[in-house]
Every structure is written in C-alpha cells, then in structure tokens.
Design a protein around this nucleic acid. Structure first.
Lengths: 127, 127
DNA sequence: TATAGTAGGTACCTAGAGGAAACCGACCCA
DNA sequence: TGGGTCGGTTTCCTCTAGGTACCTACTATA
C-alpha cells in the first residue's frame, strides 16, 4: 500500500478541481478508518485505537494522528502518569464531517451495486 | 506522487469503516480532477483531456480512464476514423456523485479556514 | 533479576505507484 | 521519403509511504 498525494492545484495552468485540498485532509490514507473508529468507540488510548483500527502499525498510526491533530480534527490529551496515558478523541471540527460521511454512505448503499455491475460487464466484454 | 490503496475492510477483525470501498472508486488519485474536468468542459477527446487536467501524463491518464470506465463513471466512445478519435464523457452514474461533491465544496468553504488556523497554532505551539 | 506495559521515536529496507521519454500502427500530406 | 496526428503502450527510473526492528524512561510484577 502506498500513499496518496493529490495533484497540486493549479499545476499546468488549467482549471483546478476545487476539492483536491480537502481530499488530502479528510481522505488521506488511514484517516477515515481512524476517524470512524474514534466515532464508533469514543475516546480511546493509543493501544486501544491501534487494535480497533485494524492492521495499522504503530508508526503509521502515530503519523496519521499527528496529522489529524495538526489539522484540528482530533484532540490528543496527554496524562503524565506512569505508565504514560494518552487519549484521542474527535474534535468539534471533526464532527462537522458527519454529513459528508453520511452523504458518502448513502451514495455507497444506493450506487455501489451499479459499480459492481458495471465492472462485471466491463470485464466480460473486454475478455 | 504515489498511489492510494485504502486499507482492506475487515482486516484485523475489527469493525471496518464502511466508506472505504467508495474511496477507492471515487477518490483514487487523479479521479476527481478528471471527473471535474469532464464536468467543466463536457465531452472531450483524449488529448484535450490530457491538456485540461493539468500535469497528468498520458500513461496515468489512460490508467485512470480505464478504471473510471470499468467502474461505470465515465463513458468512452471510439470512432474508427483516421486519425482515430476517442471521446470521454461522464455517465449517468458519474453524475450521481454531484451532491457528494457539493457537500465536499460546502464543507471546504466553511471549515477549511478552521483547518488552516489549527495548523498554524499547532506549528507555533510545537516549535 | 528479568520481563512486560506504555507511547511513541528512529534507522533501515522494500514494494510499488507514478513520471519521462521513446515507440507504434494506420493514415494523410507535401 | 519524411514528417505529423491520434491514442495509447512499453521501458526505465525515481521517490516515498509504509513495514520491521530496535530504542527510550519508568514502574509493577513475578
């Protein structure tokens, strides 16, 4: 699996797609599973999150959480105890993404079967 | 720039984010600029599209168009003339993405400044 | 003594996407 | 005979995200 860098807006002098900057913020790799897990299970510690998200490694999870924290979508709370305890939760700004995700899920449920059908017909006709 | 492969759903046994399959269809690299250009300029030939999208190379444009065609979001029409002529346009299924993109643009205009502010405060406090 | 747990940080390495550029086949024009 | 157009395809090369492994400081437990 590799990363995602959306094309630079305005590159080449052509009209640039206006939503590309948002994609790097919201739809970078692993960001949606992380946000989804935080939304499902609520505030979680690092190791919990690591288990709940799935196959993500600790290093990448740290990187993505830093990015999400920098973008203001996730709040990190550090408790200087022993052993140290860190908790992550979705910020208010992160919660404003809810209608966007809702639109995505509705599109998914209504139109994903059409995509599947288009794929099978394409694969059979281009055999 | 590298590719985008979103994590496999269900990997690791945890609850999987339900929107990840859609991301690979709609938000793969270059797909949104391509769809945007097709939407802005209407039906276009390959070379036109290549120029209008921006810095994309012909090889990658071909790959992405094949994927979009396979997913049923784009319609390819081949005219066996000399020199050959191929036209691309958005399908009806592709047009159903419009509300999704609209939601994205509204979120962008309303909340992107907050992201910028969060970034500057993060960068100054973590200097 | 030794091991485990916590929340990462760091160094090294690999796989694979994507870019650059050359090439192609059919035809037209000069 | 050579060059140009169109829609790609092929070859080669680079870049980098992400994986593996190992490290910290401190405590509790066995």
């Amino acid at each position: 699996m590799t990363a995602q860098n959306h094309p630079a807006p305005g590159a080449g002098g052509a009209q640039a797609c206006p939503i590309t900057p948002v994609l790097d913020i919201v739809f970078s790799r692993w960001t949606t599973p992380i946000l989804w897990t935080l939304h499902q299970f609520g505030r979680q510690r690092f190791v919990e999150l690591n288990r709940n998200v799935g196959t993500i490694t600790a290093k990448v999870l740290t990187q993505r959480l830093r990015q999400l924290e920098r973008d203001g979508l996730v709040i990190r709370t550090y408790h200087p105890e022993v052993p140290p305890r860190v908790e992550y939760e979705i910020s208010e700004l992160g919660l404003t993404l809810a209608p966007l995700f809702a639109t995505l899920t509705t599109w998914s449920t209504t139109h994903l079967p059409e995509v599947e059908r288009a794929r099978t017909t394409f694969d059979t006709t281009h055999a």
